[in-house]
Design a protein around this nucleic acid. Structure first.
Lengths: 213, 213, 213, 213
DNA sequence: TATTAACCGAGACGGTACGTCGAGTCTTACC
DNA sequence: GGTAAGACTCGACGTACCGTCTCGGTTAATA
């Protein structure tokens, strides 16, 4: 029943943690998730295997942490020029009053992110892993996806209050109408993912959400 | 340049092929894709490993073939009561003139299929594998997904001709508006996948596709 | 109890038999006994594997046959210039009356044979195999070694009758006194095997066999 | 140029080393060298295959080490009753002044050793392997045979000084006159290997070495 | 300031699966 | 019915990683 000797995180080496993150991301990008191994990460990071096993339960968990770290740093960089009033790194969806324009802006940004070669490999790896491993999938959704989606919900609720979206529309479903097609195309690589596509998705979807005349 | 000695497929053992398919599907369902091994499949199928390596390049390829076989047999069984004049096994989407009703029918069927515990494990495994492995993903899309999606395109074109859908709508995108959200929810397990959800998706999507009054 | 279907040797393909012999000897010489495989022999001989398994019980048996064949042909060639009165191919040990000289002649010939690079690999392979596999070893001894040794026995008996060797000497043991050291040096590669060595062996050994003055 | 990462022998598990030795010897004795496999040794020793591959280059090398270990331990046991002042374990050949008697003693002991069922299988296996594999053969000769033969050389030189053996006799060749016939009979199983045979060999051989009257 | 306990790099260990090779058997088509 | 060809089951090969473990060597907090 003993909790199997939890390590003392206050004595954890930050240097190692970062090196492991970097090695994990680099390897996934270079050789793919499949051929990325714990041993490989340890060797690349100049770290003992045990140091990885001490702090993470699986390869996927390492990658997830690394990815969160990367996302955090990226957001920090992006938001560095702003007033810095949001400590979260989540910028939110603008509300110019024009729902279609606002959504197109965000969806185009998402398209760019998905097409970013530096992010593609780890994102695909984590998504795929989450599809098969429910536990990891839940973590992925909660830590990475949900915060993003919450922003859409907020914006859509505002649109409902402004009367641009019917009151009986469930924002959660509306948001999936926007994100779903994007992810579908990206995950399955059926057709190229472009700004034009994002625009059309918004046009069609908002058409179905707008109040009947 | 030589393709490294291709085996003579006319002498292939059908018995082994079927046994391998069955073992692969059973193992993926029972222990999951990760813990399914080529050795395990061979042992379960009562087959030498080499017989698997002779005919398939990877575990994923075995599973894909097995899945196609299963899908073919399932479709055959389903279509057995009909006149049998369609050798394809693809039933097509009904056209009762009521687009919304027709789509709801098919989407509900898709929901049922995705929720079928016998199909869930292999479908997830193949999808996840295809997300990471572009080659396999392409095969998956072409052999399993595209034929399905073509049916939607046909039905949507008919709706355009009947004037229920605007002429400037791209059926390919319209279809993704329907399928995308479904897959999104199923893949990421964000919320349960129900008939009610399928209905709402159809309602919202067709709203955006219908001619402006 | 059925003798498991003995093949009809009258319909056997001589072409295949020879091709298999040649391939076996060539492969043993080129890549060594260990890396010589039945599949390799079959491929090189342009023969089906079954043709080998039909007529020989093991790789060693194939090689033994091939070697006997080779030895027979070699002896035939060597004896072709003679009157041809000996159908056996065994030339016998000359009896000039000088035992030491006669033995040196034969032992030097044996040294040359053991040093012949064309014969070395198969001879070593068969000897080694026979050391570990008693059944094969017996076959090797009876078919290849005993006929050779019998010649020594004959010559030594003649020497006994001529009074050059003590009457109480067992020719069988005397012969081993000559052959043993030669084989020892050749098998274990302790020191080079030369004519000078053969001469010394004869000198020492005959010294021990000659009548006490 | 790098020797491909040599393992750190100071951290080697002695427990595993011993278990592997024991398993190797047991298997060779029980099922023969051919049917002894690295996998079998590992399984029997309760050891991972890699632990064998880490420290030995081949099955034969494992067996050689095991045999050396066994020989060492056996010699240790045999010498335990003595004063123990010789750390070598090599007892040497006695020098009672009677060369014939001394040699008969040692050769009879060798006969007994060769006839010992516990040693037969590994000795045959190693010898056969060494006959075909020159590298291994050299190791076998240097590590096992040469030390033994050196004892004979010593004893024979003493005999030369005492005038029991002609001064012009090469002890190295003389020794082969004794050992060669023994090994020949044992390796080829031509006739049984007995004390009487050893005695005769000594009688004949020393007869050839003694000073001419 | 000396001790000590945890983390750390390193890597050997018992295992599992990999993908390949060859053994020996069986089947097919040819002659 | 013998033959060339080669697919089949099976078992071992030698390799790659897994996750655990043990070994010095730092390094930080405690005595």
């Amino acid at each position: 029943m003993a909790p199997t000797k939890a390590p003392d995180s206050s004595r954890r080496s930050d240097r190692s943690r970062r090196a492991i993150h970097d090695a994990a991301l680099a390897l996934v990008t270079e050789v793919g998730y499949r051929r990325t191994t714990i041993e490989g990460i340890a060797a690349r990071a100049g770290v003992g295997k045990q140091t990885i096993y001490r702090w993470w339960p699986s390869k996927a968990a390492v990658l997830m942490d690394a990815f969160l770290d990367l996302a955090g740093r990226t957001a920090e960089d992006a938001g560095a020029g702003d007033a810095g009033e949001s400590g979260e790194g989540a910028q939110g969806i603008p509300d110019t009053g024009d729902l279609v324009a606002d959504l197109k802006l965000v969806l185009r940004a998402t398209v760019d992110e998905l097409n970013d070669p530096a992010l593609e490999a780890p994102t695909r790896a984590l998504t795929a892993e989450g599809i098969v491993d429910a536990k990891l999938g839940a973590a992925f959704v909660h830590q990475l996806l949900d915060p993003q989606l919450a922003l859409y919900v907020t914006r859509l609720r505002a649109a409902q209050e402004a009367g641009h979206v019917r009151a009986d529309v469930d924002p959660r479903i509306a948001l999936e109408l926007l994100i779903g097609p994007l992810m579908h195309r990206w995950l399955l690589r059926t057709l190229p993912l472009t700004h034009a596509y994002a625009d059309e998705i918004v046009d069609y979807a908002v058409g179905g959400l707008a109040p009947r005349p």
